[in-house]
Design a protein around this nucleic acid. Structure first.
Lengths: 112, 112
DNA sequence: TTTACATACATAGTATTCTTATGTATGTAA
DNA sequence: TTACATACATAAGAATACTATGTATGTAAA
């Protein structure tokens, strides 16, 4: 998933779900580019991590898909299901708690 | 490591190194209790995660050990080596960047 | 007194996650 | 025709943490 960064392990599902909560629908490659641009290239989301994660979220009923052909290339769009919309809220709260606890454990004041 | 919290994966080494940068020396069980108290019980560090991590950090030359018997029980104290002291600085900077990027990706403002 | 819990270490087997490598396929720029 | 970008996917392997188990001592409760 990253440039020598083990830290993101476990955060991928939350990242995907949150991006989809802001964008209605996105396709895989679009997600990789979005993550890259948001982090200014610091986090590179690999296909080997992304696609299995998307399939797993779909299998869990959190995502729904629709396939389109654009410019003669296949695109598989993902969108939050109703369950997915509810789950984003939980995942984001967990992420807040996680960051809070990590900052406590590492003596890091929030950077602002 | 956690109560239904996958997010901490990859952060354990940094947490250990940082605790040892504040405490000169600590033993394993003490570390588990410190983590528990700092996070108010939200993060429970399991032995199956802690001890292999300590052994790995020692093998990497970042930690040095000294064994003592206290109250008829064995204690294996860990302390940062010179390399370890240098590495904490790097790890903490990586953690800051990680938190920064994660907050960007999740639209989380720093909580203060 | 024996059961449970806390202290203190350790490891084997398993599950999960991510990386690396590879594969298919189209389009564009050098 | 080579390289790169777009777009999907999976298999093999590495890394990390969890569960379960084991050893051993001390204390409190039932």
């Amino acid at each position: 998933m990253a440039i020598s960064n083990e830290l993101f392990k476990g955060t991928l599902q939350t990242i995907i779900l949150n991006l989809l909560s802001e964008n209605d629908r996105m396709y895989g490659y679009e997600i990789t580019q979005k993550v890259k641009s948001i982090t200014q290239g610091e986090l590179l989301l690999k296909e080997g991590a992304l696609y299995p994660a998307l399939h797993k979220l779909e299998a869990a009923g959190l995502l729904e898909t629709s396939t389109e052909v654009v410019d003669n290339r296949l695109r598989k769009y993902y969108a939050l299901s109703q369950d997915g919309k509810a789950e984003v809220v939980n995942k984001l709260q967990e992420a807040r708690d996680f960051i809070q606890n990590l900052q406590l454990l590492l003596n890091l004041k929030p950077s602002y």
